[in-house]
């Protein structure tokens, strides 16, 4: 089975604070086809996020498929609140890169 990286299928892959206690991730597609492809692939789910970031289910506050925007979105509780001592991404905007390499099967 051929695969493509998420980075090559999505228009936007980003992370950002959603309150001082959470970081939210948005994966947005230009067209319905790629959105549906990734949505139905089973490669971007609560379970795969838990595995990728090595976190328990309780760390994921929301996981949403948002059809009007062709977007998949999930939100994590931070282990350290934004801007606290030892915390090194005050905006939470550099937490998305591991998503870029997720391999999505694209058929034969």
């Amino acid at each position: 089975m051929k695969t493509k990286k998420l980075a090559d299928l999505a228009k936007t892959v980003r992370s950002k604070n959603a309150s001082p206690d959470k970081v939210t991730f948005d994966i947005i597609f230009n067209e319905k086809e790629n959105y549906e492809l990734v949505k139905s692939s089973g490669c971007l789910t609560r379970e795969t996020i838990m595995e990728l970031f090595n976190i328990p289910n309780e760390r994921i506050s929301d996981f949403v498929e948002f059809d009007p925007a062709y977007a998949i979105k999930f939100t994590l509780y931070r282990s350290v609140t934004s801007g606290s001592p030892g915390e090194s991404d005050v905006f939470g905007c550099q937490q998305y890169p591991p998503l870029l390499d997720i391999e999505i099967p694209v058929g034969e």
């Binding site: 959603a18 959470k22 939210t24 506050s61 979105k73 939100t75």
Partner: peptide, 17 residues
């Protein structure tokens, strides 16, 4: 656009709804 406005509902929020 539909996509840009809908996508904005997600921005900096844990949930777009």
């Amino acid at each position: 656009t539909i996509a840009s406005v809908a996508a904005h509902a997600m921005y900096e929020r844990s949930n777009p709804f």
